[in-house]
Write a protein that binds this DNA or RNA. Sequence first.
DNA 1: CTCCTTATGCCAACGCCATTGACCTTACGC
DNA 2: GCGTAAGGTCAATGGCGTTGGCATAAGGAG
Lengths: 234, 234
Amino acid sequence: MPKRVVPEERRRRRRPTRSGRVLSESLIVETALRLLHEHGSAGLTARRLGLALDCDPSTLYRYFRGMDDLTLAIGDALIGRALHGWRPAGPWREDLRAIGLRIHTAYLSHPQAAVLTASRVSGRANELAADEAVLDVLRTAGFPLPEAVRVYHAFIDTTLAFAALDAASLALPDAARRADEDMWHSAYARLPAATHPRLAEAAPLLAARMVTSAYPTALDMLLTSAGDRLAGPS
Amino acid sequence: MPKRVVPEERRRRRRPTRSGRVLSESLIVETALRLLHEHGSAGLTARRLGLALDCDPSTLYRYFRGMDDLTLAIGDALIGRALHGWRPAGPWREDLRAIGLRIHTAYLSHPQAAVLTASRVSGRANELAADEAVLDVLRTAGFPLPEAVRVYHAFIDTTLAFAALDAASLALPDAARRADEDMWHSAYARLPAATHPRLAEAAPLLAARMVTSAYPTALDMLLTSAGDRLAGPS
DNA sequence: CTCCTTATGCCAACGCCATTGACCTTACGC
DNA sequence: GCGTAAGGTCAATGGCGTTGGCATAAGGAG
């Protein structure tokens, strides 16, 4: 029933909960991240969060407009962590590879938030800094502007797309995730060669490979193609 | 409470619902797709589906083990539509490009469903057929088995990842989607060159390009890299 | 130091949701 | 046409997010 959520910086009164704990936006976000880690994708509920913070679930609505607002706040924190401390260090290809893997890893460490935020354009500081860094690596490497933009677009969207896809698998309820993974050992592994010869011969390799992320492979293929263009018509 | 769901092809009795409608797996899936279009990706619930089909929600459990099983069936239907009528026709590169674009297009035509299903592995008929087709194109082109599996993995996951990413944007509420798109004309276009020189110089190109899908570009880069390997060490 | 205002925590309730067990009815194989 | 069990329906369970009303204590004003 709070019509209005008081922004964190305007908060004056800090009234402790019945257990003596003083709440804050960042405390709630940190606790939410912990819950997601401990209890899996279904582990973040207002009720459970209230339990962990020893406050009533409805109290959270004094800090966020709803669970969705809370999730966005969590996602915003992720972007900052991904590139925290990164500096360009080597050849452009290594730098881009490092940036991509950092973003991918950061999102996958909190899959539930990643699923909701990977497809959004926030225009906030950390997002701008990441984009500037990618473009700078490409331009410094000698890519002409239109080509740099082309590669940037493919690079950043491939990275975010894989982050979202791989995060979605991790964010599934345990039962569903296991069922999806087992599929490569069950349905795919037992196909008759008569109807599915190509899948039959590939089954063992698929069972080993498909449970991993294709992002490193796809990223390398993308960088190889970009390198061809840089070297080729120069 | 149905311990066991009777597979569609073994169904003998077709008892109509109280309103006289005869249910079937495909009727349920089609209705679910319609609901997703009308009510958004959170709009598919057993209750609403029961309302639309004029049957009790629990009846659905005679056809699917649960809502998760239903979403897998929806995803398989999308893949089926994507490759309906497709036949290998030309050089492997054209064939793969066609398959990828068909899948991408099919998913984007049902964004709300795509968001739910793009990251799942169902092992159902249409999914198997699509995978068999991709592997067949690669093997016929002369890729050795391990390399074919590598390219297959990167190809199919890149395609599904972009389908999910692009679908997520389309599935956003109108206001949020427009806000995301305008970002490239507002925040990004007005950055001072002092702090973000690379973004500043690229802004006009970004505004034109970032509102489109990077999938065609990324796909071409992937296929180019695969082609290099096929031609190179042969 | 006291008083008043109101921010903020708490309680109870609402209306969703998926899922299940028991029941009942009717379509189909014989 | 009869017996069986497939398949539709009902009612109930325990979760969820969210909200209106209320109680209380924090912190500024004097």
